[in-house]
């Protein structure tokens, strides 16, 4: 891995069914992630994806880079904007992983997730073992 290298890139389509599956698998049944009426009543534009669903997509990208979850040392993200998932058409999120630093056997990757031109995560960073 070289500093500045884009080591992972993927576009993810998110539809309501994905959020329902994630709710079931994770146990996070907050209705803002599947009930449009509820989401709007609490001031959101529509149903939004779980922040953890977005981070899980970045985790998928990390797995494509490292292949072994045991090589991931740390992984964090700040959810800076909601991923709004309309009933029709869903949402598209573009993910990238770029090498920011390599020291000894640890690489620091900066992760981005962009939806409708806006960053939906900030300060998303993972450290991984390269050897």
């Amino acid at each position: 891995m070289n500093v500045g290298e884009v080591v992972g890139q993927r576009t993810v389509k998110i539809e309501r069914i994905n959020l329902v599956m994630y709710a079931g698998a994770s146990g996070d049944f907050n209705p803002i992630h599947w009930n449009e009426t509820f989401a709007k009543a609490v001031g959101l534009p529509d149903v939004i994806a779980h922040g953890m669903y977005t981070q899980a997509q970045l985790g998928r990208l990390l797995m494509e880079v490292v292949g072994d979850p045991g090589r991931i040392v740390s992984f964090s993200a700040r959810f800076s904007a909601p991923v709004v998932v309309p009933q029709d058409g869903g949402a598209k999120v573009e993910l990238t992983a770029t090498v920011e630093a390599v020291e000894d056997d640890i690489a620091t990757l900066v992760l981005r997730a962009v939806c409708n031109g806006a960053d939906v995560v900030k300060d998303a960073v993972a450290t991984v073992r390269v050897a």
């Binding site: 779980h50 922040g51 740390s74 993200a77 959810f79 909601p82």
Partner: peptide, 14 residues
């Protein structure tokens, strides 16, 4: 009123 703001993990092993 709750929204998830940040999440970090530090792993010892999976």
């Amino acid at each position: 009123r709750v929204v998830h703001g940040e999440q970090g993990f530090e792993y010892k092993r999976p």
